[in-house]
Design a protein around this nucleic acid. Structure first.
Lengths: 353, 353
DNA sequence: CTGTTAGCGCTTTCAG
DNA sequence: CTGAAAGCGCTAACAG
C-alpha cells in the first residue's frame, strides 16, 4: 500500500489545513527515510550535517512535532508525569498548581487526567486510570485523593491526601486530626458549647480523623459530645446541606457547626441562609481545606487550611526522586501542618461581638 | 531488554507488584488470543458467552485496563478531549473547572496538558502541543490563552481568551474593552482623576483592549491621559511590581491604579505595601480577571470579573459540537460579559471614606 | 466462534 | 552515513 504518499504535494506551505504531519511526510518531503528523520530529531550520531540541515528545515517548514502517543508507545521513558484526579474541582486544581510549580526545571511535562465524573467513576477509579496511563503515557503518577491505596502497582506513584488508611504508597497528607482540633478549639474558645458537626464520608480516614479531632477537642475541654449533633454530609454539597438543615431544625440547635470540608461548610452557610439564621450572629461555621472559594463566601469562611499547593509540590518532588531513583525517598509519608484561618463566619455565641 | 515477557508467570495473583498488565498477559492467562480479548472488551459480536465470561474474569482479576496510548494510536476516535495550557495557573485551572463541568455526560474524558514552563515554552507552544496530541491522543482541543491563533490546523479546536487578533478558530472570550471601562469608570466615579495603569503584554490583544478601555473611559469623562501614568507590567508579577513601584514613586503619583490583570493588581498591592502606602486609603487598585486568589488579598481586590468557568464550559460545548458535527456551530466567536466586583481595594481619593 | 495478520507513528538495532 | 525491518499495545479486517 502507499499510505503516507507524496500524492498530496507537500511543498511550500501547501499543507495549510491538513491534519497532523507525520514523520512519514517529513521523510518524503526531505527525500530521506523515517529512521533518518528520527535520528535527526533525537540527535543521534551518524547523520551527515547536510542531511540534518535539510531535514531540520523541512520539520520547521511543516511544523512537525512528534506524536506524544506514538513516542510513548515505543519508549520506556516519556518524560511526562501524570496527575490523576477524580474530577477537576477546587482541591485537585490547587494540587495541580503546586505540581506545576514543582515541575519547572525538572524537564518533565505534566498531564492531568480525569474521566470527569463519568457514571462509572466510582471507588476504584485510580486503579483504572493508573492502568490506562502508567508505563505508556507517563513515567509516574500523582494520585489525588484516591479512595483506595491498594494499588499493588509497581512504579513511581505518590498519593496526595489519600482517603483511606495507611498503605505502601508514599503519601502526602495534611494533619487532619490536628486541624480539626484547631477548628473546634477555636469554637470552644469563643464560648460555644453546643457544637454540631457535618461529617464527611464515613469510609474515608480523612473524614474519620476530622471527626476524631472534633471528639478530642470536646474531651479536652470536658464537654460531652451530644451524638445528636453529628450529621452525615459525605463531603458533598447536597447531603451536607440536608445534614446542616437537620441540625439547625433541632429543638435545641447547635450554636456552631464544624463542617468536615469547605464544600460542606459552604452548604451549611446556604442552609443557614435558607432558615434565615444569621452567621455568625446566631451560628458560627468552621470549614476545612481553605479552598479559594471559601474566601468568597458570605460571610467569608473561617476554616482550617491545608497547604494544598505545597502538597502538590511535595508530591512532585517525591515522585521525581522516585523516578530518577538517585537516592531513596527518606520520608515515605509526609504530613504537613494545618493552620486555622479566621475569617468572618465565627463569633462568640449569642450574637455577642 | 525483554521487559514485557511472559517469562514471569501470571497465574493467580502472582502479578502483585508487576508493571502494567497488557492484553497479551490477559490473553495468555485466559488461554485465548489477544483479538478475542479485544473483542470482549469492545463488546464485539462473535464471542462465545463462556469465553467472554472467562476473559472478563481474568481481566477483573488482573485489574487489566487498556492502555490509552496504544488504543489512541490505533483508533481514530479516542473519546478524549485535551485542554492545552501554557501553565497551570489560576486562570487556566478555572477554565479547567468549567471544562470539567461541561464534560459530564458527554462521554468524553479530559486531559489537560502543559509543558509546565519549560524554557522553550515561548510563543508558539500551542502549535507544538497541538501537533503532539491532536489526532492521536485527543479528538479535539481547547487552547487556553494561546498567543497565536494561526494554527492552520484542520480539526476541532476552540481557543479560550486568545491573546492575539481574530482568527479562523472558534473562540470564547470575555469583553475586555467593556470590562476595562467598567473598572476605570468605577475609579472615576469614586472621584479619581490621576489613574495609573499597569499594562499587560503589548503583543496581546486582550492587553491592548484593556488599555483601550482605560483610554476610552478617560475620554468619555473628559480626563486627559497622562502617558507617564502607563507602565508596562507584561501580565507577570515581577514586571508588574516594578511597574507599580515606578508609578508610585513619581513626583505626582496616581491616586488609583488599574492593573491589566489580577496577578498585576496583586503585585501592585505588594508594591504599595512595600512603600507603606495604604490601600485603599491613599491608593485604590482595580484588577482584571477575578481569579479566586484576588478575594484573599489584603485588602480583598476590587476587580473586573471574567466568567472564566463559563468560558471553559462554553468552549467544551462548542468543541463537542464541532467533533460530533451534528450541526454547524452558529457563533464562531462567543464573547461573554464582564462585571465589576467591588471589594475593599477601592475608595474615594484622599482617604475620604 | 476464534486466531492470524496488518498496521497506527515512532525508535532502534542491524545490514548495506 | 543511511534505510529496511521489527515491534511498543492495541484494533479491525479476514481467514479458518
Amino acid at each position: 500500500m502507499e499510505p503516507t504518499d507524496t500524492a498530496v504535494p507537500v511543498h511550500g506551505d501547501a499543507r495549510r489545513g491538513m491534519g497532523r504531519v507525520t514523520m512519514q511526510q517529513v521523510a518524503a518531503e526531505a527525500g530521506v527515510s523515517v529512521s533518518t528523520v528520527s535520528k535527526v530529531i533525537n540527535d543521534r550520531y551518524g547523520v551527515a550535517s547536510e542531511t540534518s540541515r535539510v531535514v531540520t528545515e523541512v520539520i520547521e517548514r511543516l511544523g512537525y512535532e512528534a506524536s506524544l502517543v506514538a513516542r510513548s508507545l515505543r519508549n520506556r521513558r516519556t518524560n511526562v508525569i501524570g496527575v490523576l484526579v477524580a474530577d477537576f474541582e477546587p482541591f485537585s486544581t490547587e494540587v495541580l498548581k503546586g505540581a506545576a510549580d514543582a515541575i519547572r526545571g525538572t524537564g518533565y511535562e505534566l498531564v492531568a487526567y480525569s474521566a470527569g465524573g463519568r457514571v462509572d467513576a466510582h471507588v476504584g477509579w485510580e486503579r483504572r486510570y493508573l492502568s490506562r496511563v502508567m508505563g505508556t503515557l507517563v513515567d509516574g503518577a500523582v494520585l489525588v485523593t484516591p479512595t483506595i491505596t491498594e494499588v499493588q502497582y509497581e512504579g513511581p506513584i505518590v498519593a496526595v491526601d489519600p482517603h483511606t488508611g495507611p498503605s505502601d504508597l508514599p503519601t502526602v497528607t495534611a494533619d487532619n486530626l490536628g486541624g480539626a482540633r484547631l477548628g473546634v478549639d477555636h469554637l470552644i474558645a469563643l464560648g460555644h458549647r453546643r457544637i454540631g458537626m457535618v461529617t464527611g464520608r464515613p469510609d474515608l480516614v480523612s473524614a474519620q480523623l476530622r471527626e476524631q479531632g472534633y471528639r478530642d477537642s470536646h474531651a479536652a475541654a470536658g464537654i460531652p459530645v451530644d451524638e445528636q449533633l453529628l450529621a452525615a454530609g459525605a463531603f458533598e454539597p447536597e447531603p451536607a446541606r440536608a445534614a446542616a438543615r437537620s441540625l439547625l431544625e433541632l429543638a435545641d440547635p447547635p450554636t456552631a457547626i464544624f463542617a468536615a470540608n469547605d464544600l460542606s461548610a459552604l452548604a451549611t452557610l446556604e442552609a443557614a441562609a435558607e432558615l434565615d439564621i444569621d452567621v455568625p450572629g446566631r451560628l458560627s461555621v468552621v470549614g476545612f481545606d481553605n479552598i479559594p472559594e471559601s474566601a468568597l463566601a458570605h460571610p467569608p469562611l473561617t476554616t482550617v487550611q491545608q497547604p494544598i499547593r505545597q502538597m502538590g509540590r511535595e508530591a512532585i518532588s517525591m515522585l521525581v526522586t522516585l523516578i530518577t531513583g538517585d537516592h531513596v525517598v527518606e520520608e515515605v509519608h509526609v504530613s504537613l501542618d494545618t493552620t486555622l484561618v479566621v475569617r468572618r463566619s465565627t463569633a462568640a455565641p449569642g450574637g455577642a461581638s
